[in-house]
Design a protein around this nucleic acid. Sequence first.
DNA 1: TAAGACTGTAAAGAGTATTTGACATATGTG
DNA 2: CACATATGTCAAATACTCTTTACAGTCTTA
Lengths: 72, 72
Amino acid sequence: MCGVMNVENNIKVLRQKRKLSQKDLATACAVSRQTINAIENNKYDPTLHLAFELASVLETPLEELFNYNRSE
Amino acid sequence: MCGVMNVENNIKVLRQKRKLSQKDLATACAVSRQTINAIENNKYDPTLHLAFELASVLETPLEELFNYNRSE
DNA sequence: TAAGACTGTAAAGAGTATTTGACATATGTG
DNA sequence: CACATATGTCAAATACTCTTTACAGTCTTA
């Protein structure tokens, strides 16, 4: 239900700005490289836990890291 | 994995402040009442999508709604 | 007492997030 | 060329989120 709604993210841009590889970011967040890759390419959304971890590592507020478009 | 880390939340307090029942909030977020109940009682964390929905309905920033304690 | 609204909880099942391992490609460097 | 690094992707397996259904307890009010 509600399939139209997406949580886009700016992870790739922010990661590259800090000169981190997907593997670097994965290690810093204690997840696999494939997980970072999948999230950057919008295969699925991270868990809330990982979202906070990403925001912390990338030193970016959650609201900036993810663009949530309500009820499109 | 990573079992020590938790994402606590202030949903119950904020919900009651707005005089909403669990059912009210559930309906507004398009999830079941049990889901709201489980999240309020820390049975599990919501998805990122639902977290944004809760923040939107409760008109509260994500960082205020959830208390993320990193690497305890 | 009875009835209604609100909340806590449990079990079964569907759907999603994440992992590991593998393979492909592209780029840069010895 | 050979080697390393970074990235995209796939498949199978596991863990977790979330749903529905159901029952129980509390509180208020008629």
